[in-house]
Nucleic acid binder design. Structure first.
Length: 290
DNA sequence: TAGCGACACCGGTCGC
DNA sequence: TGCGACCGGTGTCGC
C-alpha cells in the first residue's frame, strides 16, 4: 500500500532514469482495453485507451515529481506541455527493464497494464495487480479539480497552520482524529499505516474527536506525522503487501513500525485493540493512547 | 446547492 | 482443498 514515503521512493528512483527521455510507443493491456469497452474507467481515466496511447506517443519526460501520493509526469510534445498524473492505487508498481521477463515476481509480471518504450530502448512498465491505480493525461492540473483540493505537503512551512485551521472547521471538529489526518484535504499523503504510527507516537487515541484535542497535542501529533513520514522515506518505504521499488525490492520501514499490525504494545506490553474508523482498521494501545 | 454517505473498482489472502 | 469474505484509496453518484 503505497503512501507518501513509498511514492517518494518511486519518484526518486524513477526520475534519473526517465527524465529527458522520450516515449516512442505506449501500449495498454488488453484487460484495460476490454474494461473500457465495458464502460469502466479502468486505470486510464476520462480517456479512451487508444487516445491515451496515441497522445503519449512522442512525449518527452521533462520532469518527474511527487505531490501527496500522486506522481506527476511533466511532459512535452511539439512544444506543448502536458501533465500525466499517476496514482499507484493499492498495488501499482513501476519497473524499468530491457524486457518484461526481468520482472521476477510473477504476480507483478502477470498484471502489466502499461508499457512505454523509451528512446533509449528500455521499457518503462506499470504493473498493477488490483487495478486501483490511475493515469490521467491533462493539459494542466486544474483540469482535475480534486488535485487542487489537496493539502500542502506535510514538510511545507504552512502545513502545520493549515492542519490546525482545518481541525477547527465544523466539517472536521467532530470527526475522529484518525479520519481527519488521513483526509488528503487536511494532510497530504498520510495513509493508514503512517496515521496509525503517528497517533501511537503522539499518544493520541485514534477515535478522539479532532475538536477535543489541545493545540499542543495537535502540534505534537503533526510533528509525529512528519517524523514517521520522513523516517519512511529514509527507510525506502513500508512493504506491507505489494509495494516494490523500481528494482522490485521491498522497503524496510515495516520493521520500524511499532503499532500497525501489532498485537502487543511495545511500550507497556498491554494487548493492543483495534477498531474501524472511516472504514479502516485502526490499531491502538488502550493504555498509551488517550 | 452544498455536503455527506454509500458504493464501485479488484485479486490476494485468510479463515472456515 | 476449496470457497467465500474481507480489505482498501479515491472518485463519483445520489440523496
Amino acid at each position: 500500500m503505497p503512501e507518501l514515503p513509498e511514492v517518494e521512493g518511486v519518484v526518486r528512483a524513477l526520475a534519473p532514469n526517465i527524465e529527458g527521455k522520450s516515449i516512442l510507443e505506449a501500449t495498454l493491456s488488453e484487460t484495460v482495453c476490454e474494461a473500457h469497452r465495458q464502460g469502466k474507467q479502468c486505470i486510464v481515466k476520462n480517456m479512451e485507451p487508444a487516445d491515451f496511447e496515441r497522445k503519449m506517443r512522442g512525449m518527452t519526460v521533462k520532469k518527474l515529481s511527487r505531490r501527496a501520493k500522486y506522481i506527476f509526469f511533466d511532459l512535452e510534445k511539439n512544444n506543448e506541455t502536458f501533465l500525466m498524473v499517476n496514482h499507484l492505487g493499492m498495488t501499482g508498481a513501476w519497473f524499468i527493464v530491457q524486457h518484461e521477463n526481468e520482472i521476477l515476481e510473477e504476480k507483478f509480471r502477470n498484471h502489466i497494464h502499461a508499457k512505454f518504450s523509451l528512446s533509449t530502448g528500455e521499457l518503462l512498465i506499470f504493473s498493477d495487480i488490483r487495478r486501483f491505480g490511475e493515469f490521467r493525461l491533462l493539459g494542466t492540473i486544474d483540469e482535475h479539480p480534486p488535485l487542487l483540493q489537496m493539502a500542502p505537503e506535510p514538510f511545507d512551512d504552512q502545513a502545520l497552520d493549515y492542519f490546525l485551521e482545518k481541525c477547527g472547521l465544523p466539517k472536521y471538529k467532530n470527526k475522529p482524529i484518525k479520519e481527519v489526518i488521513m483526509d488528503g484535504q487536511v494532510i497530504s499523503g498520510c495513509g493508514n499505516i503512517y496515521a496509525t504510527e503517528a497517533l501511537f507516537r503522539a499518544g493520541v487515541h485514534p477515535a478522539r474527536k479532532a475538536g477535543r484535542i489541545s493545540k499542543k497535542r495537535k502540534i505534537d501529533l503533526f510533528e509525529a506525522i512528519k517524523n514517521v513520514l520522513s523516517e519512511g522515506i529514509e527507510m525506502g518505504g513500508s512493504t506491507i503487501s505489494d509495494y516494490r521499488n523500481i528494482n522490485g525490492e521491498a522497503g524496510g520501514m515495516q520493521h520500524r513500525l511499532k503499532m500497525y499490525g501489532k498485537k502487543v504494545c511495545p511500550n507497556c506490553s498491554a494487548k493492543t485493540k483495534s477498531m474501524i474508523i472511516a472504514g479502516r482498521t485502526s490499531v491502538y494501545c488502550p493504555k498509551c493512547q488517550h
